[in-house]
Amino acid sequence: MKRNTKILVLAVVIIAIIAVAAAALSGYGQPTQVLKISTTTSLDDTGLLTVLEAAFEKKYPNIDVQFIAAGTGQALEYGKKGDVDEVMVHSKKQEEQFIADGYGTQRYPFAYNYFYIVGPADDPAKINGTTNATQAFNKIMTAGTADPNTVKFVSRGDNSGTNTREITIWNSTGVNYNNSVRGQPWYIESGKGMGDTLVIADQKSAYTLSDSGTYLAYKDKIKLVPFLTQGKDLLNVYSLIPINSTKFPNVNTAAATKWTDFVLSTEGQTIIGEYGKDKYGQQLFVPIAGKPEPTS
């Protein structure tokens, strides 16, 4: 009997410790209003969001903007679970599906740039001079199949926006991606972020598809050169999507609306258009708020 009492006391003590800890922790670190935005690594890595955040928080000091950077697939997944208030991503098809499924309210394109097709300077697949991404990928595939030791392609393989675009381009060459590209000896899936993927491609003297921001940030550390930097099939549009508060009542809609308005405002769009000129010597993003979405 006495033993059982002691066990009971011990159990109560442990539960009390956990309860107190949980109570203390739940209040820990939620000082002001928080706006959680999940976004893509490629956007976050450029440093643009830090600058936008600083300007926004100057205007709204009681809102703490917090970015969670992941691939577009995962960033949308956070939104589907109601764990963030807004998403900032770059994969139109997935975004439209996200809204159609009722997770997001509306898609607000706010900037664009182009994906780059980069590769070793000696260009073993001879893609220099091709006029679109489909053509270039076709050449890489043909040359890679013929000589997988010299011609290689490194893919993110992580369901990110960049990865999704890459697969779209492979399919546009007329072959089935899963049968003719994935698993081929010349095709390597890194399963990593853009930066790591560029380093792997560099070490293997391989081609890859990169967003322009990450490539420019890495340019001095790797030997890969850009071959295609424009065109309809390389167009890369970034959008904001507030999470649907009917579905998730916990979402901070008021703050999300303020952020959306700020990014689309003249002030936000100027920051976006100017960003990178001093650091990379060129504009990284073209602002597009209030204009029709570019098609080429």
Binding site: L25, S26, Y28, G29, Q30, K36, G82, D83, F248
Partner: peptide
């Protein structure tokens, strides 16, 4: 996660959750 059993505690993406 918000829809998980302890979602109401708002601990996801906080230092408390990491602890």
């Amino acid at each position: 996660s918000y829809q998980g059993p302890l979602g109401g505690l708002n601990l996801l993406f906080t230092p408390g959750g990491m602890i």
